[in-house]
């Protein structure tokens, strides 16, 4: 699977069971990237998309277990570390801001190779950094 996640400066994803941040432009970008594939997520994440009009979105609470190789998984509130063995590629979106966090992206990126990095302007974020890691 290709894992997609958003993190703050401390690799945080969630605080008090709520996403740290969101961005309309980023959502559109994720839909563009995954347009010709399958995009898995759970119900919590699906609520910020419009799954009825986005055919690639598949909603399942156990999506990280069900995604096949080459398929995308967008995760916000799941401990990703336990799925590391199944991950082929990581696409990390960095907010470049600091938020409170109690759930962090816990895959150790020093074991992965950064192959791509670029910035784009979000809706409420001046700079979102997209980083792509492979094994």
């Amino acid at each position: 699977m290709i894992l997609m996640a958003c993190v703050d400066d401390n690799m945080g994803m969630l605080f008090n069971k709520r996403r740290q941040s969101q961005d309309k432009v980023l959502r559109a970008h994720i839909l563009d990237i995954t347009a010709n594939s399958r995009l898995w997520m759970n119900y919590y994440s699906a609520r910020q998309f419009e799954p009825d009009t986005e055919p690639q979105i598949n909603i399942d609470e156990n999506f990280l277990s069900k995604a096949a190789p080459g398929e995308f998984c967008f995760t916000e509130d799941v401990d990703v570390g336990v799925y590391e063995q199944q991950v082929e590629k990581i696409i990390l979106f960095k907010w470049n801001r600091r938020y409170p966090g109690d759930l962090h992206f816990n895959i150790n990126l020093s074991n992965w190779r950064l192959v791509e990095s670029h910035d784009f302007v979000g809706s409420s974020h001046e700079k979102i950094t997209e980083e792509v890691y492979v094994r």
């Binding site: 740290q20 941040s21 969101q22 961005d23 600091r98 938020y99 809706s123 974020h125």
Partner: peptide, 18 residues
């Protein structure tokens, strides 16, 4: 200021803007 309050302000600001 920076480690305590600012992250919470950021979270609220982003939510309201979005």
């Amino acid at each position: 200021n920076v480690d305590g309050m600012l992250p919470f302000e950021n979270m609220v600001a982003d939510y309201v803007k979005e």
